[in-house]
Nucleic acid binder design. Sequence first.
DNA 1: TATTATTTTTAGATTTGTCTAAACATATAG
DNA 2: CTATATGTTTAGACAAATCTAAAAATAATA
Lengths: 217, 217
Amino acid sequence: MQSFTEENYLKIIYHLSQNNIGAIQTNAIAEKMQTKAASVTDMIKKLADKKLINYKKYQGVTLTPSGKSAAINIVRKHRLWEVFLVEKLNFKWDQVHDIAEDLEHIQSNELVEKLDEFLGFPKSDPHGDPIPDKNGQFDTIPFTKLNKLQTSEHGLVMGVSEHSSNFLKHLEKLGLTLGKRIVITDINDFDGSVELIVEQKKISVSREVAKHILIKV
Amino acid sequence: MQSFTEENYLKIIYHLSQNNIGAIQTNAIAEKMQTKAASVTDMIKKLADKKLINYKKYQGVTLTPSGKSAAINIVRKHRLWEVFLVEKLNFKWDQVHDIAEDLEHIQSNELVEKLDEFLGFPKSDPHGDPIPDKNGQFDTIPFTKLNKLQTSEHGLVMGVSEHSSNFLKHLEKLGLTLGKRIVITDINDFDGSVELIVEQKKISVSREVAKHILIKV
DNA sequence: TATTATTTTTAGATTTGTCTAAACATATAG
DNA sequence: CTATATGTTTAGACAAATCTAAAAATAATA
């Protein structure tokens, strides 16, 4: 069993591995953990001793199979709790991330399995992220980021890759929520902002925002 | 905001204060916390610095108003989560204590209020303990301990004052669960064990067990 | 390739909660 | 009202997770 902090490191290394190929650098972890590189080096050594990550000095880290499976389990719990908070307790999708950050560390396999059952074995969380099953399996549908679409292409909003309350409230205001159908009407050459139509409404989305919106074409 | 450990100390001091009059002794806390008296002294000083307890060397501790209110809030969360686990996730009443020990430390007032609402504002938990409302108010119905009843008295099983899995499984086996009507048929002079009838079945309960069963006469 | 610049690691200190062993205070008994 | 037993506190140490500052390794650049 890992400590609260060890679990957070594993989770962050896992997420970084999803978006980057190769070993994960100390500084990248430090930034996500909001801590200093020296602290990361200390923790990295500890996780390597426990065979949860592969580590060679100055070469960054990768998860071992057992580290990956521990990380996926945390992600599973996080996403199941988010579903609970939104579906059962009526939280908004922009309010659940921080609470789930705490709930994900509750240790009880039986709790997770019963929660999963209670929620009807959901396949994705309120932000469109897939929920691993009890064996850590889940399918990654290869979504396209909104900023990669061309003019006149259309698709469905399937997820977001940024979970901050500010970002999600912004999408809410724009009407860009999960399941919505969109059509690209124009792309601004100068700043990369995207003009599109959602529910008969013409809106504009900055490139920075578009990067975090996942579309099924 | 208190740390995980500080919260556990407050909770234990609160529970001890319910069953004992006057100040709570260092050793009593040490026993419940499964730690050493020296560690308790250290923590006591810290809680006193934060004005959560009143402390005079060698004289034991009492909760201050803010310490008591913090403790009651933890108890509230613990009991609400127990209701959730039993009513919604189908846990047995003997399986929920340890999981609720973790869940009670999740920090979010909004979560607690929404959970309370989701559960329909329950007044008591699966062991018959009263659930404080959001202002810390709750009524303590003065139950009688089973070992204090006389032969031929009857009553209803309303709660238990011991939450270990072993104890609760034992009651389950005897059919002595919440709401059951009982009649005392005999009290053994020698060992204080109690003979009684539940649901037409004649059973015997040791004095030690009887002490932890709360009856409404 | 030699020289910066960047990144990572080490060394040593700090904080939180714990411990053991010894000192001190209070309670109990003769 | 001493002597002993019990309970509590202090002193000093330790492990976990963090930090700053300095050293070492790697990468980038002239």
